[in-house]
Design a protein around this nucleic acid. Structure first.
Lengths: 341, 341
DNA sequence: CTGAAAGCGCTAACAT
DNA sequence: ATGTTAGCGCTTTCAG
């Protein structure tokens, strides 16, 4: 590996000038800068992050903590984080918190404390008091996606509002018998997202003067299969059948779609289905959904940490993330009473 | 941040001994080791990777290059890599090669040369001559998943054999009119996987003495939607209809499954469908497939680089990855001639 | 088995 | 604007 001395020699300047010219810190004459750049280029010199970070305290690297790598939402957010960070010349090191408690602890106790990163982005992780403090003790800019965590700067989407919007869409189409797939009280990890979405659902109903039917509340685990099973339950039971389904995630909505099909109910004629998230398969399934733009969430989090790094301000307020109702083909006006099977 | 000196002072030894005790390199008396560990523990000391890597040349960090973060196969492989690496105390930094040529170039020209990693895992990336040489010039262990790349140590699954096995399964069920969804000559990135899978398909047919019907070859882009469209074409055209479909990926197979359903063909009674990959949704869709265990591929690649790091051998040969036919509900014996619609 | 001390390659005062 | 120089916090000879 070619070192800074060689560049200095070739450019006919001191190593300090090379450092300044290449990093943009401190003043260097245009002429020197030019010669340094040419020299560096011709030698193929790249600053060693080892040496540079030891001397300067900066690593040009951001740590990203995620609970899952292989789930659509998380990998999409990560993709957004990565593209924004790379665009700014930053590298990203990945801390995958798994269900394994030991792994999780070792990330907070050891990995994150190795001084490998300048800042941290935590994606939809429910941090306990200790973990939050450990993060803060690092003395680095930390920004969390999905929260809120009162101690951390957070970018969070208003899950209650999201669910409310989706439900209002159904209500506006004349539906009153609306089922809810999601909310499993025993399964409420990840920031109470399931619960918040149920609250939004219930609020919309309440605003419309509708009392939720307990039989229309079917818990599921946020997977396609879970949505499928839940929908089969809802549609298969004798008695009043819902005319619309609110699924707390697109994956479950897709499952519900397939279940309806398998049972012989046509969507949206006999059953309207709305999801949440903006899943990549939503368009294929013509699924009406409330998109929360996960890719953009990742990019935005990246921009936020970079801002906190470049500027020395404490700046960015906790921000609410945008969302949008995307009406596709899985929802329609409630069929007139007579035409129901 | 507490430094090595404080640990040394508390343990009553020199910093050299602390370093030796904590890293396991060089001899330290059991007594000293014990006292150092206690001291380090009580102070919450973690070795600074900045200083350590500058002094030792080791980073305890592995770089992973991936072409996509948000596609099932890649995020699953990455998940495997990550869990194996973390288990061994390594961190992982991510280099996401996108379609953007500039980003791609900057990864090879700059990011990878910052001396941030001890080894590199390249996941299903088609590297040109220059890029391969740049990787090699790093002087680090490099292992590629999906290849083969003659210059790199490679873990690769035999795509021809994979496709052949899937096709033979169909043949063994009595099918002779077998369509192929995949292979798009103009789209043959990512290691000619599409082409190899078509070769395997054709070889199986040839071995069975069957001449492939050109009308049964439908190109698609490896997505659910692509598979859906392709299947609609195949099934919708007047004339001879295939009784079975070989899809070169599970995503396309799922698309084909949905297309058949939408057209009113029942699977597997009227149409058998087999995919490749072992997609997580395969079980839900009861899809017969040839699993290539991507999670295990990632873990294995991680173990391989670690082996190359711990031992100083050049060791590991290029290895063929395992695969397995998983027969589920989307394939069945060809229906007797009379019963076809 | 242990300590002293010389770097690792760069950055950041401090001079000039 | 530029050079000199003292570290950054470890690891690793080299002695003992």
């Amino acid at each position: 590996m070619v070192s800074i001395d060689e560049v200095a020699r070739l450019a006919g300047v001191s190593t300090a000038t090379v450092s300044r010219a290449l990093s943009g810190r401190g003043h260097v004459s245009a002429a020197s800068r030019e010669r340094v750049q040419v020299a560096a280029q011709s030698l193929g010199y790249v600053v060693s992050s080892r040496a540079s970070s030891l001397a300067s305290g900066r690593t040009t690297n951001v740590g990203v903590i995620v609970p899952f790598l292989d789930r659509w939402f998380f990998s999409t957010v990560l993709s957004g984080v990565s593209s924004a960070l790379m665009r700014h010349g930053y590298d990203i090191t990945l801390y995958n918190i798994t269900a394994d408690r030991d792994v999780r602890r070792s990330v907070f106790d050891t990995a994150l404390r190795r001084q490998r990163v300048d800042a941290i982005i935590a994606v939809s992780i429910e941090l306990d008091e200790t973990e939050t403090d450990q993060l803060l003790a690092l003395g680095l800019p930390v920004i969390a996606i999905g929260g809120p965590n009162p101690k951390l700067e957070t970018l969070t989407v208003d899950d209650v509002a999201l669910a409310q919007l989706a439900t209002e869409h159904l209500l506006s189409l004349g539906h009153t018998e609306i089922a809810h797939i999601g909310a499993n009280p025993e399964f409420d990890l990840d920031f109470h997202i399931p619960t918040n979405r149920r609250h939004g659902f219930e609020r919309a109903l309440a605003d419309a003067g509708i009392t939720p039917n307990p039989a229309f509340l079917e818990p599921a685990d946020f997977t396609v299969e879970g949505g499928y099973r839940a929908a089969k339950q809802l549609l298969g039971r004798p008695g009043v059948r819902p005319t619309a389904v609110f699924a707390a995630s697109d994956e479950m909505a897709i499952g519900a779609l397939l279940a309806a099909r398998d049972l012989g109910y046509s969507v949206p004629e006999e059953l309207s289905i709305v999801g949440i998230d903006g899943h990549e398969l939503g368009e294929f399934f013509r699924l009406t959904t409330v998109d929360q733009f996960p890719l953009a969430q990742g990019e935005r989090a990246a921009e936020a940490v970079l801002a906190g790094l470049e500027a020395s301000e404490t700046s960015t307020e906790d921000a609410a993330l945008p969302f949008e109702l995307i009406v596709r083909g899985s929802t329609a006006r409630r069929a007139p009473a007579g035409s129901a099977r």
